[in-house]
Design a protein around this nucleic acid. Structure first.
Length: 486
DNA sequence: TCTGCTTCCACTTTTGAATAGT
DNA sequence: AACTATTCAAAAGTGGAAGCAG
């Protein structure tokens, strides 16, 4: 983590930040809370992404992230700076990956093309920053890195990596939750931030040679592939070691050349879209990420049968582009006649969009909590066997689930959950806002949604989750229970 | 045949333990 | 004895390429 002394005091004005951060978003203090004597909620949280220029240079070409079975780090990796937190209040930081749309893509010569509908969602996971929970002063004193976050295409992954589909597009979503521990999360206010330029396509092998070059140029681990470096030497060595291979390859190349050479991309003509996208540099919202996740795991059942899923974008869109100073609305419940009372699944169920507009669909995350494997070897790691908490709701049949959290914990502080019982049905509620993701430059625009965006008043909302804990017995019925692997 | 995925390879950086020095 | 600095080996992270499967 790089140090940012200018963040040592949260009172420091943002414009004193020496880094170039174009992607910031400041949420106004909630009217219902500001001045109410609860300084904890007088948030004016500001999040900026580190290395925005690097992200932008990738984004302009069309960022690709390798996903592998054992898990692969992101590059560039997610690194953010925070300000406006209450220094002495504890916060939890989370990241999850949100499908950009309901489409599958393929690389055709020099550009991405739609290749059909998205695959059913893999188990939904959220990465918990290993420092969580930590006081605001901790998060603000330096930039926060999610370096160890790993992406995998292994749906059966036991290491807690975030599971994605290859050839699908995603963007990371950052959640800040003021909570003393993970069990308080569900009653807490979420503030969610996304950065459009962090959108990427998950791939098992790089498609765009420009991306490969950028990665090699900027990723220190890939130094060996740089032109001026040992790259050629290395290949020479390899050739010497295996002449048979070389002979094979040469004959192959003489026939039709390297496929990657053919794929030299040209992304001209797409800049307009990209430019327009720049206008909305960051999206922020206040709601539980779990809700958004609610329709995800549920997607198999929901999408197949529900007319609400007719538009692929609806399946995923739980966010809405948020104007910089949009109005804060602390209780979404009232907007939709939901009771804020902790009547567990009821809230979740309605939040899961089984009865409402399509844009209100929730995702049901895979709730098991899985640590990064480093933590598994550390005795200090918390015994954090969060049971999967996504039981089918009895009254709504198989389509509705209480929201659940499947957190991937790289390395968490001991005692984070120590005094709490081992259950946590993080009830989730669907965001009411529909997020309309701007397409990356080289992508064809996705089909327009068949419905209108929700009014802007839903765009940034805080949700106090007050659901009851679910019945533990119910969780055991859920197949994803098995995710406690430390 | 084509496309996407897995595996292995050689190389690099990172990490942490052991050792030396103050 | 305690702390800091240095060294070094192991582990982990890279993209390329070959081979495999559907």
């Amino acid at each position: 983590m790089s140090r940012h002394p200018e963040y040592a005091t949260p009172s420091l004005p943002p414009n004193t930040h020496t880094h170039t951060h174009t992607h910031t978003h400041t949420l106004p203090p909630p009217p219902s809370m500001a001045g109410a004597g609860d300084s904890y909620h007088q948030g004016n949280i500001r999040m900026t992404i580190e290395d925005p220029d690097l992200w932008r240079s990738f984004h302009e070409i069309g960022t690709e992230m390798i996903i592998t079975k054992p898990g692969r780090r992101m590059f560039p990796h997610c690194k953010i700076s925070l300000s406006g937190l209450v220094p002495y209040a504890k916060y939890i930081l989370l990241v999850d990956m949100v499908p950009e749309d309901g489409l599958r893509y393929k690389w055709n010569k020099d550009k991405w093309e739609v290749a059909g509908k998205a695959e059913p969602q893999p188990p939904y996971r959220t990465y918990l920053h290993p420092d969580s929970p930590a006081p605001g002063s901790h998060w603000m004193k330096q930039s926060v890195s999610f370096l160890k976050l790993k992406l995998t295409n292994n749906a059966l992954d036991q290491h807690g990596h975030i599971i994605l589909h290859s050839m699908h597009r995603y963007h990371p979503r950052f959640h800040i939750v003021q909570a003393d521990d993970l069990y308080s999360v569900r009653w807490s206010v979420f503030q969610t931030f996304t950065f459009p330029e962090t959108t990427f396509t998950a791939v098992t092998a790089y498609q765009n040679t420009k991306i490969t070059k950028l990665k090699i140029d900027h990723n220190p681990f890939a130094k060996g592939f740089r032109d001026e470096g040992t790259n050629s030497k290395r290949r020479a060595n390899r050739s010497l070691a295996d002449p048979e291979r070389v002979a094979k390859k040469m004959s192959k190349d003489s026939e039709h050349g390297s496929p990657r050479d053919i794929q030299q991309s040209s992304c001209e003509g797409l800049d307009d879209e990209h430019a327009s996208r720049k206008e909305l540099e960051v999206k922020a919202e206040r709601y539980s990420p779990w809700e958004g996740a609610c329709d995800r795991d549920n997607s198999h059942a929901l999408r197949a049968e529900s007319p609400l899923s007719s538009d692929p974008r609806d399946m995923y869109s739980s966010e809405q582009l948020v104007p910089g100073q949009s109005t804060y609305q602390p209780y979404r419940f009232h907007e939709y006649g939901k009771s804020p009372s902790p009547s567990s699944s009821a809230g979740s169920v309605s939040g899961c969009g089984s009865t409402g507009r399509s844009s209100l669909e929730s995702r049901v995350p895979d709730v098991a909590t899985v640590p990064d494997h480093e933590s598994s070897s550390k005795p200090s790691a918390p015994e954090f066997g969060l049971p999967p908490t996504c039981p089918p709701h009895p009254s709504t049949g198989h389509q509705d689930y209480t929201g659940v959290l499947n957190m991937a914990i790289a390395q968490t502080k001991p005692g984070i959950l120590g005094h709490h019982p081992l259950y946590t049905p993080y009830s989730t509620e669907q965001s009411l806002g529909q997020w309309s993701g701007a397409a990356s430059a080289q992508y064809p625009p996705p089909p327009p949604p068949p419905h209108h965006h929700l009014p802007s008043e839903y765009s940034t909302q805080a949700v106090h989750h007050g659901y009851h804990h679910g019945n533990v017995g119910d969780w055991s019925q859920y197949p994803l229970f098995s995710y406690s692997c430390w």
